[in-house]
Design a protein around this nucleic acid. Structure first.
Lengths: 250, 250
DNA sequence: CCAAAAGTGTTCATAATACACCCATGC
DNA sequence: GCATGGGTGTATTATGAACACTTTTGG
């Protein structure tokens, strides 16, 4: 860095530029006991959209963290969830998407096995809860055991964020190994556990023989997964062959 | 909006939150006379990275415009390019990616036919110029008629932005109709013009018969393109059948 | 007439999809 | 013993890649 540049940086005043706020929001998916796809929502304790449900997220700390780091921190603070693999989804930046001021949201998607999801509501947010995703004439509904939320009633533009996340995950599932992230145990699973994940995300029933073949081609023959040459009892009626994801690299 | 919420919004002080700056940057690709893939770069007139080359872009005006609008405006102001289809690429947000302060970049990709590219350098930026993209042991080089830039010498993290844009466009070309955006005339083109676009992006020679068949399956039979039932002279040696993109919707 | 661009047909391996059927086990 | 979850084989069709070949046209 030469001297001119040094002088310039000294003079630079941050206030010269009107800045938007930036948040990181996270769309968290998991599978419940029924193998249905679930979404994690949080009830907002503060204005704006007080008492509305929203995806977890919060303001990025400028000069301290990236959007990825902010997303990981907010998820931890609001729900207690840690060590998850976040994928950037899209950045939503309409000036009127937040009534307070211009708030730009960098949205992320996380796929988390239910076992890893011990939700503990944090300070900022209120209740954190999982909802089944149901399609309806009027759009998407989010079902809790005791009540239902319409996507129309979500805070901000979170309806669009969730819709984009669902579209993205459906589009990727057939050619990216996303499904493995939802396995209860990546180091010991059966083909049918994996099949159920695909079925939940695609929302359709798959053919057993064909699923097995494509698993062999795409994940066994490529070395992404390995056959453990062990059988697991008690999953269903018959013992099932066990497999493991080999590369921990994602 | 109830009264409580109104009072809250009144009290909200923007200064309570330290904000990052936000820019929109645009990776513009085109094809030159040799049907080589070209990238548009701009020589910076100001610090930081004065006299370095960078992709066009600039600060988003908070409370006024979205990142998409900022990208379109900056592209127009810096290069004179208008009415292009911008696709969001990724958001880069490392706190140290700009020496001034935390500057988050929402990056976009634009594919523009050369005919539409009448570059007129604007106020903010210096020269705007097209570069051939060349792969080298040391990484990617950008070739102008009279000089060469290494990706190592680009401003900010634009090396990573460009690399991601190249990866993305290569990955999408086989299953998204991106190539049509680079056609000189979407309402009158030959299969071989289209083939050359694919070859430039994939950086390999394609088989004529196979390309023709996949064009028929994916774009003629689906109704995305129509056969104009006319022949065009003078493109090469023999007259060629003309086609048109039917839907203007993208 | 001949090189280069435009266009066609045939083959082969692989992939997706459908369907019929067998095995093991808990109740 | 039979329903259910686990597992296999085979046939059909679609796709991708390779290759050999013909037609047209400007110079």
């Amino acid at each position: 860095m030469n001297n001119d540049e040094h002088v310039f940086l000294q003079k630079y005043r941050e206030e010269d530029y009107k800045r938007p706020s930036v948040t990181a929001d996270i769309v968290v998916f998991t599978l419940d006991e029924d193998n249905d796809l679930n979404l994690l929502l949080i009830k907002r304790r503060t204005y704006p959209f007080k008492d509305c449900w929203a995806v977890p997220g919060g303001f990025l700390k400028a000069n301290e963290e990236s959007a990825e780091e902010a997303a990981a921190r907010e998820l931890r603070e609001e729900t207690g969830i840690q060590n998850v693999y976040l994928k950037q989804l899209y950045t939503f930046s309409r000036p009127d998407r937040d009534p307070r001021t211009h708030v730009i949201s960098v949205a992320f998607t996380a796929l988390i096995p239910k076992a890893k999801l011990t939700i503990t509501a944090g300070d900022d947010a209120g209740d954190a809860q999982l909802f089944k995703i149901k399609y309806d004439i009027n759009g998407i509904l989010f079902l809790a055991p005791d009540f239902t939320i319409s996507e129309q009633n979500l805070a901000f533009d979170h309806k669009e964020i969730i819709r984009m996340a669902l579209t993205r995950i459906r589009g990727r599932i057939d050619y990216e190994p996303d499904a493995f992230e939802l396995l209860r145990d990546r180091s010991e699973f059966t083909i049918y556990e994996l099949k159920r994940i695909y079925e939940s995300i695609k929302n359709e029933t798959l053919n057993t023989a064909n699923f097995r073949k494509s698993f062999q081609r795409n994940y066994l023959n490529t070395g992404y997964c390995i056959d453990l040459n062990r059988k697991s009892k008690n999953t269903g009626k018959r013992t099932a062959e066990l497999y493991a994801v080999k590369s921990e690299a994602r």
